[in-house]
Design a binder for these strands. Structure first.
Lengths: 200, 200, 200, 200
DNA sequence: GATGAATGAGTTTTCATTCAT
DNA sequence: CATGAATGAAAACTCATTCAT
């Protein structure tokens, strides 16, 4: 009960949580240790009690965003039945422009710009793990579809392409003007499933 | 229109040209106005005679790289006959790990990290134009293939997806460990053309 | 006088003793209050129960080292007979490069750099006392030699010079490259005793 | 004439010269880049135009002091005739407590505390060179004395000891209370020359 | 037009000391 | 008595931009 012994890991998360929105509000590049301290309502020195250095802070905040995004996705596909529909939801992240989604999307954008500029190995490793998480989910979706005889067995061949497609759409949405991600995704899924779906 | 203006533009290009390789050599992020001045053999103040600010310089250098890349690509597909082969070459940029290609690829990576971090509107505009250039080329390739009865007329529907796929592969190659872009692209093209190619 | 006070003094020594080797291991300059607390297995705040401030801690640790060095020296000359030999041992500290000796020597170096940089009066006082201790020992050695008719009575005049010489050699060993302290000390003692020793 | 091209080396010296007295006034350890900039009447950034880093500044200031000291010494012994007298002047630096001399002496003290605390190799090298300079001068003095039949040929054997003695006296003057350097040096020289001087 | 010297705001990081529990 | 979480002053260094010559 007493504050004598603080749970370091928990405090880390508390500080990061307090700064969760900084990424949207001022951009990852402009986050300074001072800002973090102020936002979390603590002293600059205190930040260094819980984080190795500035990158460590940024990393924890990003971590939190990704985790949040994972959970959102799992929630989303929980009750969906058709494979086509599940894949639609898989692409929600890049298709849907709801305010909340856009906040996450912009967080991801900032995140990418860090990963791209840093030659930070652990960032790449972390990013690979995120990729594998979603790839695993997609694989499950596709395999379930095959089992249910919804889609043809060779659908499994298209997983890599879907993953790449999704990332490409994200990138274009981030870097191009007037890019209509919804239409492009819709067309892609329809073309794809017209090929993959088994006629009954 | 005035000869003044033309000279300015020419000098801009001269300076940028002198700095063409800086992006590979020291990385876009580490380019300073001092470096540019030194590399171009002019004074730091002179740089500001021809460029608004640092971003303006970076922009011009990038411009030059993209242009160079455009020309390379046009050269590449000049004598290629089959549509499948042309699309293969279209993906050369992300598939082939030759030293020269990797230099360009890493330049593109640096470039992306700038576009993503900046909220620079003109960057986005510029990037859109680049996209449209390559999209145009791809469209021509596909349309020619349709005219030649190599591929089915609905192939035109897949252009957006190919564009997105290519960008997604690029992104993954930049941000993931042990990513095998070659195999993924090969499988993608083969799967695609098995569907699109007309049997004779 | 009160048992309180005695316990305080004892605890001071316990803490300092626990940190005895820190000086060799990480260097005096890099000792932080945190390190001291950790090494002594107590809380940072507790350190301040027993020490006024950081300098006070450092001082206590140094104290302990000097005391240790005193004892070593007394041990060393206990059974030595000839005066020349005793003076040789007097210079052991700056002549001999055994690992243990070098550890102490480097400790002394760190110590000096503190004394020189600080305008700390008590440090100077303390250092004077150390000097007087060794000067007393040297005086006894010389006086014994005179009594034994080993060396001439005016040898007493050379005590200050020997003391200064020893410190000068130490300083040079600390601050010069390729300084051969052994040869210089040997020559010095031989020259000196050739003058001072009585022929029989 | 125009400020278009500044002589970098000269400006370095100008800045260092402006800070010449900082060492006495606030102590070497407390010199900050800000202080240097303020004292020299320039901007902080400007300091870095002429110096690699903070150590580089300190080094230049020290350099200037040593150089100054060298010149003073050469001036001092120019017209002195007897060898005994020359060696007296050789020890002036540690014997005489004139205000100007004490300023230099304190500068040397600060300098030593840097050399001792840093594991900076170039500092040691530099210090060795200073030593060699004065050793050379002393050697010349002694050799001249031998040539003139003032002192015995084996006087040459005592050079190292005189050098060490001088440094030892300096160190004691820096680190001990009520240390009477004058008397000790006087006694040393007299004892020494009573032995070395040839009787006529 | 060309130059490059001067600038200072802005950033990260350390650590002795305090004080509430 | 003991503790350790919180603190913030202080310091080194970078670099885009300006402006006098």
């Amino acid at each position: 009960m007493s504050p004598r012994k603080v749970n370091k890991e928990q405090k880390r998360r508390e500080i990061a949580l307090a700064c969760f929105d900084l990424i949207h509000e001022i951009g990852m590049k402009k986050i300074t240790v001072s800002t973090v301290a102020q936002t979390a309502g603590i002293g600059k020195g205190t930040v260094y009690e819980y984080f190795e250095n500035k990158d460590d802070i940024i990393f924890e905040i990003i971590n939190m965003h990704i985790e949040h995004h994972h959970n959102k996705f799992l929630e989303l596909i929980k009750d969906v039945k058709s494979t086509r529909q599940k894949v639609f939801h898989f692409l929600d992240f890049v298709m849907i422009d709801s305010e909340e989604n856009m906040r996450h999307f912009n967080g991801y954008k900032e995140y990418l710009s860090i990963v791209l500029s840093d030659e930070n190995k652990s960032m790449k490793q972390f990013n690979t793990n995120c990729h594998l998480f979603f790839e695993g989910k997609l694989k499950t979706i596709i395999e379930d579809g095959i089992k249910n005889k919804e889609i043809s067995p060779n659908s499994i061949e298209f997983i890599d392409s879907i993953m790449a497609f999704e990332k490409g759409v994200a990138l274009q949405k981030m870097t191009q003007e007037n890019f209509n991600s919804y239409d492009i995704c819709e067309k892609f899924i329809n073309n794809l499933f017209n090929i993959l779906e088994l006629k009954k």
